[in-house]
Design a protein around this nucleic acid. Structure first.
Lengths: 109, 109
DNA sequence: TCAACATATGAACAATTGCTCATATGTTCA
DNA sequence: TGAACATATGAGCAATTGTTCATATGTTGA
């Protein structure tokens, strides 16, 4: 007969966050899981930048950057402010840096 | 004429990691960007587990879990040991916990 | 008010991805 | 050695995703 692990499972289940939260967690990391967005976040590491500067930096279309900034903003990873025609984006909080920092450590160790 | 930001860009460029490393970072987070894999990592948070226990816990196919464990292992996020017919998986290092922890904080704040 | 600039957005297409199904590999025990 | 169990793997399909292209929205200054 297949081996049984009901006792273990009941214990683990009790400590697992809700499915909804786990889904949200996955969705959050999905946002980090794209090179373009990682580059954008790195570009904003030290200071805010306008959309066209980011596009220049990454040698990508303004449209492509704008789409990705929307994704980042929806995940509360960046924030923006308007100054005339220009819109400046910046990292939203310190979690962005610490998440990227931990990932960096994992890779380079 | 469009506005110029060459000076800023040169400064930022100097501080950006290589494209290859940024790609690797994106690839790493891509692994975190799936609910099934997040659930697996949470299941392994406290202790090692065998494949069929994880499949039972998540009510998913052994095959599906096995495929995902392969992805997690390729990213060095889990490690495994064999004990007879059974193979036990565990989290590979502390980065897994801190990355997930930071994500959790970001979401629940 | 109109032209120029900065950014946002929707549709569409190619590429990637996670699961299923069938089957292969590896291990134990009688 | 062969049957039962535990896990791994390859092909295929549906769903998701990132970019492009065309165009819309918003702002400024003449």
């Amino acid at each position: 007969m297949p081996h049984n692990h009901d006792a273990l499972l009941n214990h683990i289940k009790a400590d697992m966050p809700s499915d909804e939260l786990l889904q949200d967690l996955g969705d959050l990391f999905k946002v980090f899981g794209d090179t373009t967005r990682i580059k954008i976040m790195y570009a904003l590491y030290e200071d805010e930048m306008c959309v066209c500067a980011i596009a220049d930096l990454l040698k990508m279309t303004q449209s492509a950057i704008s789409h990705q900034l929307k994704v980042l903003k929806a995940a509360n990873l960046v924030a923006s402010r308007r100054e005339g025609k220009t819109i400046y984006y910046r990292l939203a909080d310190e979690h962005v840096k610490s998440i990227i920092g931990q990932g960096y450590e994992h890779i380079t160790e």
